[in-house]
Design a protein around this nucleic acid. Structure first.
Length: 432
RNA sequence: GGUGGCGUGUCCGAGCGGCCUAAGGAGCACGCCUCGAAAGCGUGUGUGGGUGCAAGCCCACCGUGGGUUCAAAUCCCACCGCCACCGCCA
C-alpha cells in the first residue's frame, strides 16, 4: 500500500507515477474522494459515540425516574450509533480497497514505459560463439534427453503441459545448485529458511499478488489457501503484525522453496522446454531494512546475483526494468538475463526488487527507532526487498546450453564441481 | 478429526455487565539519593485514527468477526490460534 499521507499531501506525485507506469491517474481522485467520505463518516460516528458514552455514565450514577428518562433518550441514540459505525466501517473499507489498487510509485531512476523500455546497465561475459567452434549447439531439451537429466514427456504424462521431471544428473544439478546457493547466502549473512508454500489470503494480498496478478495464482479448492509463486510471500509475511527493533535491521533471509505459477496469458510462449513452467524450485533472498538503507541493500542483492552468475560462468546482462513492467509492489527492479545460445537472446534468470514500504504497510510491519517522533524516532514503516539467487529450471537451461560440448556432454563450472561429487563433465547416458 | 482448558498493554497477571479513563508486579526512561552504582523513593511509559497553529481534546483497540443490551474485556454464537489428552498419519 502506498503511503496515505503522500496521497493526501502530494497527489500529483502519485498521478505522475501512475502515468509513468502507463496507468490511468483516475484512481488517485477516486482515492481522495474515498478518503473524504471516510473522514466525514468518522467524525459523525465519534460525535454520536461520545454522546452515548456520556449518557451511559449518567445512567450508571442515577436511579428511579431519572434513570428511566435517560434510558428513553438513549434508546434511539443506540440505533444511530450502530448505523454510523457501519457507515464508518464501510467507508474505511472502500478507501482501503482503492488504496490497495495503487501500485508502488516507481523510482525516479526507473525508465518510463513498458516491457521493452528497459535500460541495459551492463554486459558481463561474452556469449559463446559456437560457429567459431564449428558445431551447432543443441537446445536444453535435447541435451536434457541425452544426459538423462530432464524428462519432459513423462512430466506431461503425469501432470500436464509445463511440467517435467529432473532425473539423474538433472536432479543432482538441482541439489548441487540449491546447496551452493545456500552456502553463498549464508556466507553473505542470510539466515537459511524453508518456508510454507501454502499461505492465507492475507499474505498474498499483503505482498501484492492478489490484485490483477491473481489469475496467475493457484488457489486450493475450498480451503482459502494459496500456493505461492515465490517464497517472497511467506518471507514478507513472516514478520507481519510485528514491530521490529531497528537495531536488528537489516534482517536477511534466504529461502528454498517450490514455486507455483499458472502462467495464465502466456499460452504459446516458451512452450518448448522448461523455460516457463507451472512449478519450479528456487532459492530467494529477502531483506528487511530501513527505508533509507533499502537502496544500498538493493545493490547488495544485485551484487549477490552477479557473484552467483559469475560462478556459473554464464554470459549475462543486467537491465533496469521500465516502470510499466514493475510488479505492483516494486519501486525499482533489476533483472539479470543470461545468454541462451539456441534462442540467440538473453533470458531472465534472476530479478531483484525494492518494494520500499509497500508490503510492510499492507502487512503491518514496522520498525521501532530510538528517540521520539520529533527527531525521526518512534515507530515507522520499514522496507522489504527480494532477489532471486537461483531459479532451478532456467539456470539448468543456461548451464546446459552454455557449457555443452560437441559430443553432447556438458562441462561443469569449477565452482559447481564440489557440489556435484567432483564431476567435471556430465556425460550422455543411454536412453531409458 | 474428537474432547477439555486457555487467548488482556513490552512481559507476567487481576478483572467476568455501568466510577475499566484496565488493578498489581516486572521491564524500560527520566529525576532524587550516592564519590559512583545497587537498593529505595518519585514521575512517566502502547497502537491506530479524527480534530486543532499548538498545548491539547476526542474516538477506537482486552485473539478475529457477528449478536444480545441504553451500556460488553466481562453474556451468547461462529471462526482463528495456543496447550493437554485421544484418534489418524510421514
Amino acid at each position: 500500500m502506498i503511503d496515505p499521507r503522500l496521497l493526501r499531501d502530494d497527489p500529483d506525485r502519485i498521478r505522475d507515477a501512475q502515468v509513468k507506469r502507463g496507468l490511468s491517474a483516475g484512481v488517485v481522485d477516486e482515492a481522495l474522494a474515498a478518503d473524504e467520505r471516510r473522514r466525514s463518516a468518522i467524525v459523525e460516528f465519534e460525535r454520536l459515540r461520545g454522546e452515548q458514552k456520556s449518557l451511559g455514565k449518567q445512567i450508571a450514577s442515577v436511579s428511579g425516574e431519572q434513570k428511566q428518562a435517560l434510558l428513553e433518550r438513549t434508546k434511539g441514540l443506540s440505533a444511530e450509533v450502530k448505523k454510523a459505525e457501519a457507515a464508518q466501517a464501510e467507508a474505511e473499507d472502500a478507501y482501503r480497497a482503492v488504496l490497495l489498487t495503487i501500485p508502488n510509485p516507481a523510482a525516479e531512476e526507473a525508465p518510463a514505459g513498458g516491457e521493452d523500455d528497459y535500460t541495459v546497465l551492463e554486459h558481463v561475459g561474452t556469449p559463446r560463439d559456437f560457429s567459431a567452434e564449428g558445431f551447432e549447439p543443441l537446445d536444453h531439451v535435447e541435451l536434457g534427453r541425452l544426459l538423462g537429466a530432464i524428462d519432459i514427456d513423462r512430466g506431461a504424462k503425469v501432470s500436464g503441459a509445463r511440467f517435467y521431471y529432473l532425473t539423474g544428473a538433472g536432479a543432482d544439478l538441482e541439489m548441487a545448485l540449491v546447496t551452493m546457493a545456500m552456502d553463498q547466502a549464508r556466507a553473505a549473512g542470510f539466515t537459511p529458511m524453508v518456508p510454507p508454500t501454502l499461505v492465507k489470503p492475507r499474505a498474498m494480498e499483503g505482498t501484492g499478488f492478489l490484485g490483477q496478478a491473481a489469475d496467475d495464482v493457484y488457489r486450493i479448492d475450498g480451503e482459502d489457501l494459496y500456493l505461492v509463486g515465490t517464497s517472497e510471500v511467506p518471507l514478507a509475511a513472516y514478520h507481519s503484525d510485528e514491530i521490529l527493533d531497528a537495531s536488528t535491521l537489516p534482517r536477511r533471509y534466504a529461502a528454498f522453496s517450490p514455486c507455483f505459477r499458472k502462467e495464465a496469458g502466456s499460452y504459446g510462449k516458451d512452450t518448448r522446454g522448461i523455460i516457463r513452467v507451472h512449478w519450479f524450485d528456487k532459492v530467494e533472498m529477502f531483506a528487511y531494512t530501513t527505508l533509507e538503507d533499502s537502496f544500498s541493500e538493493h545493490r547488495r542483492l544485485l551484487a549477490q546475483e552477479k557473484e552467483w552468475l559469475g560462478k556459473l560462468e554464464l554470459a549475462y546482462r543486467v537491465i533496469d526494468t521500465a516502470a510499466g513492467d514493475l510488479g505492483l509492489s516494486a519501486q525499482r527492479k533489476f533483472d539479470c538475463e543470461a545468454w541462451i545460445p539456441t534462442q540467440g537472446r538473453y533470458r531472465e534468470l534472476t530479478s531483484t526488487s525494492n518494494c520500499t514500504d509497500f508490503q510492510t504497510r499492507r502487512l503491518d510491519i514496522r520498525g521501532r527507532f530510538p528517540g521520539s517522533d520529533g527527531d525521526t524516532g518512534g515507530v515507522r514503516p520499514i522496507a522489504t526487498l527480494n532477489g532471486t539467487l537461483v531459479a532451478i529450471p532456467r539456470t539448468i537451461v543456461a548451464i546446459l546450453e552454455t557449457h555443452q560440448q560437441a559430443d553432447g556432454s556438458v562441462r561443469v563450472p569449477a565452482a559447481l564441481q564440489p557440489y556435484l561429487q567432483g564431476r567435471e563433465v556430465l556425460e550422455p547416458v543411454a536412453a531409458r
